[in-house]
Write a protein that binds this DNA or RNA. Structure first.
Length: 707
DNA sequence: GTAGGGTTAG
């Protein structure tokens, strides 16, 4: 249902029809620097003594009086109206025009010094004992006069949600008449958000009400974004809906935060609803909201929706920034549209932006996902040539791409690069990709070596590492080690996910019948329903319900990205156990559930069998079904096209022994079929209608041919 | 960095 909403509103005209087209309403947010005009006020805001060595600057409405030590100002920047004899005497006062660049510079310097001191104070507080006494001691020692503004900066820079409330309490005691107490609460909420402590947020909110402090929009958007970060979309909604009862009307920032909260939690229809509301209420829609929308569409698989947002931004004259481009690149990567990623990258550089590491990571992923390995490696080369500042994440993105494409040598070269960079430490992701590469290549000893290196570096095996090892031992026919690895997963209290189950099932398809029992035990622990279905298949037991229905329910319980892997492996298992009827039943079920699509195709000139996404067992089953269908067509006198073809695909990955083409080459020969590998069409086996027909006749009546 | 929202991997 929600997805209908996306499609129906994703066209540019309906999505953005009510957005005002004047660019002024989209102008970038004007941060009110006036908030910091305190430095021009005669107030004592800068006389706070937090450090015995701070600069003391006395300010007057029209003139700035400086007391030593005086910041040095270069001659070029001095206004000719100024006295510059100040540098001689430490006690002299001079008058500086507050509007002059020099005064501005002095103010900035003074503010910077104060800010630095307050940040240090926040850090000290973060690591003190969470007691009122310790907090008081530290704050008392830092100076006697604490102003509200300073309190805001301290809390805003804290990261410990156990201590922040104590600090807030201290400030509430010490600041006689806070003018905007809500701000003190709001920055404290931010600390809870940093710690992902939503319970703490709700507790603090109650406290705030008890003190009679009225929440404002900032309070709500902070709470909503905390709920979002804590993956509590319902809480985000709940708080959003509470706003009016506190006299708050959502504004552009709240809408943007909520659109993001809805989008991230998969409530896309809700997000678009809100977006509609934001538009009709004529809220300014800024770059951040646009990037949220692009990301939301990209994650939902509506890639044209992402592009539409980008196009509309252009139409409206909102200049896309780096985040927009990076988000778009990521969406095009998910869409497996590397050419479009290239175009967007080009548009980005043309607009004068130079790629940052996120850009490169998105590009590498985009190319990797589409098996454009060479292009991905070119990006790597470019980054190296540019002397790009590498980080662990970027290296890991490269390694993950290598793992996807089977670039084993390249991966180890990149790993060496990473270690010699001196700045990037391998982490659990790094080791995980390397272990995957070794596992897919069937290199057990190397996988074990990397695993040890990982453990020595202080990382626990993750589900990804252990799943790779299951595959690795499975390939090597070391069933007991598969079981051991699986049990390790359970010992670490890791819940085996769909991918892990799919991997176990895949291993079973490579295991001898005698050893299958051990693996069924594992599978049953991971997924009871799947385990018992497989036990039924292997042990040829009676099933309570009907097989197709059970299997269908099972498939629907899996996430989309693993459905095909499950179906492939189950069919492989059936083929290995010589249960061809079950294999055909599963293939048919796969077609019904659209796990497989367009396996057979017919045109005027050619009938084809497309096997690209099928495992070898599933492909052999599909061939079996196709041959039966062709035989029926022949018997019913249907006209055959001049050409018949089987497309196995040419598998762009470099891992050995996975190619369907080689499996089919020998199988088709075994069947004495007239299909032969096309020399000029990679991945195709072709034959003529005449050869096909005589072969089909020979197959269906062997006794006739023998006679 | 300056009381609120955005990019960041299997």
């Amino acid at each position: 249902m929600g997805y209908h909403v996306i499609t129906s509103t994703s066209s540019p005209s309906s999505l953005f029809s009510s957005i005002p087209s004047s660019s002024s309403s989209f102008s970038s947010r004007n941060f009110n620097l006036g908030n910091f005009a305190f430095s021009l006020q005669p107030s004592s805001s800068l006389s706070l003594s937090l450090s015995p060595h701070h600069h003391r600057i006395l300010l007057h409405p029209n003139h700035v009086s400086l007391h030593e030590p005086l910041p040095q100002v270069s001659k070029d920047h001095q206004d000719s109206n100024f006295e510059d004899s100040d540098e001689k005497s430490s006690k002299s006062f001079i008058w500086v025009n507050p509007k002059s660049p020099r005064a501005k510079q002095l103010r900035k310097k003074s503010y910077d010094a104060r800010y630095t001191t307050l940040v240090k104070l926040a850090n000290t507080l973060d690591s003190c004992n969470p007691t009122e006494d310790d907090v008081s001691d530290i704050l008392n020692a830092s100076g006697d006069k604490i102003l509200e503004q300073d309190a805001v900066i301290v809390l805003n820079n804290m990261a410990n949600s156990h201590i922040a409330p104590l600090v807030l309490k201290y400030f509430q005691r010490r600041i006689v008449k806070p003018t905007r107490e809500v701000i003190l609460y709001n920055v404290t909420f931010k600390v809870f958000r940093k710690c992902k402590d939503f319970d703490g947020v709700e507790k603090l909110f109650d406290e705030m009400l008890q003190r009679g402090v009225k929440p404002d929009n900032v309070t709500f958007s902070t709470i909503i974004s905390c709920a979002r970060i804590c993956s509590l979309p319902n809480k985000a909604m709940e708080w959003f809906e509470k706003m009016p009862s506190f006299g708050c009307e959502p504004d552009d920032v709240t809408y943007s935060a909520m659109i993001d909260a809805y989008g991230r939690s998969g409530h896309i229809d809700m997000a678009l609803n809100l977006y509609d509301r934001a538009r009709t209420e004529k809220w300014r829609i800024d770059t951040v909201t646009f990037s949220t929308l692009i990301k939301m569409y990209g994650k939902a698989g509506n890639y044209d929706g992402s592009l539409n947002v980008y196009e509309e931004m252009k139409v409206l004259g909102v200049k896309p920034n780096m985040v927009i481009f990076n988000t778009l690149l990521d969406a095009m990567g998910r869409a497996k549209r590397p050419w479009q990623a290239k175009i967007i990258y080009k548009e980005m550089t043309n607009s004068g932006l130079s790629p940052n590491w996120v850009t490169y990571a998105s590009l590498i992923r985009a190319y990797g996902r589409s098996r454009y390995g060479e292009d991905a490696l070119i990006v790597y080369k470019e980054m190296k040539e540019k002397g790009m500042n590498m980080n662990t994440h970027l290296y890991n993105t490269l390694l993950a791409m290598c793992a996807d494409l089977g670039f084993s040598d390249e991966a180890f070269e990149i790993f060496e690069d990473m270690k010699s960079s001196g700045t990037c430490q391998p982490d659990s992701w790094t080791f995980s990709s390397l272990i995957t590469i070794c596992s897919c290549g069937g290199n057990v000893s190397e996988a074990e070596r990397i695993l040890n290196e990982m453990i020595e570096a202080g990382f626990e095996p993750t589900i990804f590492v252990l799943t790779s090892l299951v595959q690795c031992y499975g390939k090597a026919r070391r069933t007991d080690d598969v079981v051991k690895t699986f049990n390790q997963l359970l010992d670490l209290d890791i819940n085996p996910d769909d991918r892990c189950c799919a991997c176990l099932l895949n291993v079973m398809a490579q295991t001898s019948k005698e050893e299958l029992g051990k693996l069924i035990d594992c599978l049953e622990k991971a997924n009871q329903k799947l385990g018992s279905l497989v036990r039924y298949l292997v042990e040829e037991l009676e099933l309570d319900g009907d097989f197709r229905k059970e299997a269908s329910e099972l498939f629907n319980s899996f996430s989309d990205e693993v459905k095909r892997a499950f179906c492939n492996s189950l069919i492989d298992l059936c083929v290995n156990l010589n249960l061809m009827d079950r294999a055909c039943e599963l293939l048919d079920l796969g077609l019904t559930l659209e796990i497989y699509t367009d396996i057979q195709s017919k045109s005027q000139t050619q009938w084809s069998l497309h096997l690209k996404s099928l495992s070898s067992g599933a492909a052999l089953t599909a061939l079996h079904v196709w041959i039966n269908d062709l035989t029926k067509a022949l018997e019913s006198g249907e006209d055959f096209p001049p050409l018949l073809g089987i497309n196995t695909g040419h598998g762009k990955h470099k891992y050995p022994g996975k190619g369907l083409a080689s499996v089919f080459d020998s199988h088709l020969k075994e069947l004495k079929s007239p299909f032969h590998e096309a020399p000029d069409k990679a991945g195709w086996f072709l034959t003529t209608n005449v050869a096909a027909k005589s072969w089909l006749v020979a197959r269906s009546s062997p006794e006739l041919v023998a006679a």
